[in-house]
Write a protein that binds this DNA or RNA. Structure first.
Lengths: 108, 108
DNA sequence: TGTATATTTGGCGAAATGGCCAAATAGGCA
DNA sequence: TGCCTATTTGGCCATTTCGCCAAATATACA
């Protein structure tokens, strides 16, 4: 793998890594329906607000969300909505896994 | 977030997490062109074969690849090729990030 | 100015990750 | 059987991740 290829896959993996956490993925999904402030997102996910803030910072670092400060609140929004198109494919992987799991269970 | 929703996002995130490593992503990309054995993949990625083997096991655990043992070799193949459709969207995120970076550089 | 609300930051500890090396396992073949 | 090749497993260590709490920062508003 040459240097240029390595850099490309490093960059792609970094974006995936930012998405690859249940809380962050859930928040992206929520943001797909429209911008939200930190407090509102915190209400949805049942972890400390400081943790939510750090998760949002990870998403920002990966270029997945934009922020808009208005008054004392900060609104986060999805920068590249096509990200969510991937859910369909994820679902097909999960379904396949579920079928395998079911088959294995039936054998036992 | 209720329990069912949590489980769904845990499962989705697990698949993304399996993809979210440069070496694993590169190997998935290679497998998109056809099955490969461990030794061949190792030749491409410049890490120890034991490390490659563990990466492949992660991909298998996530349901992303299938294996086929033939003789003393084990061939890995992509189970759900639609996974690779996501690259296009990743690219648009990366391009956006690059533009931002360029803009910031120009300001300085 | 002081106080309340919204958000981020710093620090800590527990757990997971990723790499290498050495050793174990499995198959093919003399 | 023994030897070679292909692959996986176990152990170890350095690094990263993720959660909480407490403290800092920023804005609004009286």
């Amino acid at each position: 793998m040459n240097d240029k290829t390595k850099k490309l896959f490093d960059a792609r993996a970094a974006v995936l890594k930012a998405m690859a956490h249940p809380t962050r993925l859930f928040m992206l999904d929520q943001l797909a329906a429209g911008e939200q402030c930190v407090a509102e997102l915190t209400r949805m996910v049942d972890v400390d607000m400081s943790t939510v803030s750090k998760h949002l910072n990870v998403l920002k670092g990966a270029g997945l969300v934009d922020i808009d400060k208005r008054g004392s609140q900060i609104f986060y929004s999805l920068r590249t909505p096509c990200i969510m198109n991937f859910f369909g494919c994820l679902e097909s992987v999960l379904e396949h896994n579920a079928r395998i799991q079911l088959a294995v269970t039936n054998i036992k």
